[in-house]
């Protein structure tokens, strides 16, 4: 088992780095989707406002 430490380190780093990158992408995607949802709500409110006014009059 000579040099097992080097082998272990290489494979650990490969999977750790890929894992961190996947987490980074997923985190960014979730944050962007939250922002999109908030903007869509706000836009829907703005569009709905004049029609409410019209139906009230």
């Amino acid at each position: 088992m000579e040099n097992f430490g080097y082998l272990f380190a290489a494979y650990t780093i490969i999977f750790a780095m890929i894992f961190v990158y996947v987490l980074f992408i997923w985190g960014r995607q979730r944050r962007l989707e939250r922002e999109v949802a908030a903007l869509e709500r706000r836009l829907a409110e703005l569009i709905a406002k004049p029609s409410k006014t019209r139906s009230a009059s």
Binding site: W26, L32, V36, L39, E40, L46
Partner: peptide, 27 residues
């Protein structure tokens, strides 16, 4: 797989930019 995930975030960001513009125009 990673490329597809990353492309999805770029598409979502583009959608966010479009919505920001639409909202600014609506306001």
């Amino acid at each position: 797989w990673l490329l597809m995930l990353r492309l999805a975030t770029l598409r979502t960001r583009a959608r966010l930019n479009r919505l920001t513009l639409e909202l600014a125009l609506a306001e």
